[in-house]
């Protein structure tokens, strides 16, 4: 067996090691791009929930805040302006304020009273209107000349067709300013074949439309698109009047979710 000669090899190799230690080669830029793709694929496979957790958290925020607000509102007995005041059929009567102010007599206003759904309207005495108004109409409307000037009497009000009324009374065409009253009107017996409830906005439909909006927002959140929670309130008087509650609940829930997921 021959002996190896390593006298100065150690020092040479040390010299080479020091030189090569800081040596660098040029790296093609495409390598990082390929790596990024691989890392993305790997993360998608390994952590599908983590990748989308931000979007899911937005969806959770929306869902929780909406649920809490809905629950809060459903447990509130405070009457809301514009809400249906009884289970009976509610029709809208529009009376120009200037007409009321000048005539001050309900009988004079017979021609200008219009009903949205004349089929289901029947004759109502002014006394019934007065009692309905005094019970259900907000304070600011109670001060209207319409309320003050008209006392209950036996003269019935004839509810006319909207179009014919407009022809007869051109003053209505202007409609510069009108007082909107909600009055319960009993359905007439003769026209009772058609269901009365079909003319009342069904609560279930309202919920569905709101639900559809929530679903749309959730889809947007999951897709990573910006979410505008204010669109949820559109068309819903409860939410419109209590939007601050919605906002507060939303922000609180968002903070809780962010703390939980540690963004």
């Amino acid at each position: 067996m021959k002996k190896s000669t390593v006298d100065n090899w150690d020092s040479i190799e040390k010299n080479w090691r020091e030189k090569l230690d800081s040596h660098e080669e040029v790296v093609p830029g495409a390598i990082w791009e390929q790596m990024e793709k691989k890392l993305d694929e790997k993360n998608k496979k390994a952590y599908p929930f983590i990748i989308h957790r931000r979007q899911w958290s937005w969806a959770a925020v929306l869902l929780i805040s909406f649920g809490l607000t809905w629950w809060q509102l459903s447990n509130t007995d405070t009457p809301v302006v514009g809400e249906k005041v009884s289970s009976k059929l509610t029709s809208k009567i529009q009376v120009p304020r200037n007409e009321l102010a000048t005539t001050g007599n309900l009988e004079d206003n017979i021609q200008i009273v219009t009903v949205e759904n004349p089929k289901h309207a029947t004759a109502i005495s002014p006394g019934e209107i007065h009692s309905a108004v005094s019970k259900e109409i907000p304070e600011e409307l109670k001060s209207s000349p319409f309320i003050e000037e008209n006392k209950p009497n036996s003269n019935p009000i004839i509810l006319a067709d909207n179009r014919s009324t407009e022809k007869e009374n051109p003053a209505l065409l202007a409609k510069e300013e009108s007082v909107e009253l909600l009055i319960d009107i009993q359905p007439s017996q003769a026209n009772n074949q058609e269901k009365v409830n079909s003319y009342v906005p069904e609560p279930s439909k309202k919920r569905n439309s709101l639900f559809a909006r929530v679903v749309k927002q959730l889809k947007q959140a999951i897709d990573g698109e910006p979410v505008d929670w204010q669109t949820l309130k559109q068309g819903d008087p409860k939410l419109e009047n209590s939007i601050h509650q919605v906002a507060n609940t939303y922000i609180k829930t968002e903070q809780v979710v962010q703390r939980t997921f540690q963004f």
């Binding site: 020092s11 040479i12 030189k19 040596h23």
Partner: peptide
């Protein structure tokens, strides 16, 4: 298992540049 006889390294090896070593 056999080791080879390696001659005493040349001094020139100490003065090679990085590219040459590589």
């Amino acid at each position: 298992d056999e080791t080879y006889d390696v001659a005493h390294p040349e001094d020139a090896l100490m003065h090679l540049g990085v590219e040459e070593i590589q």
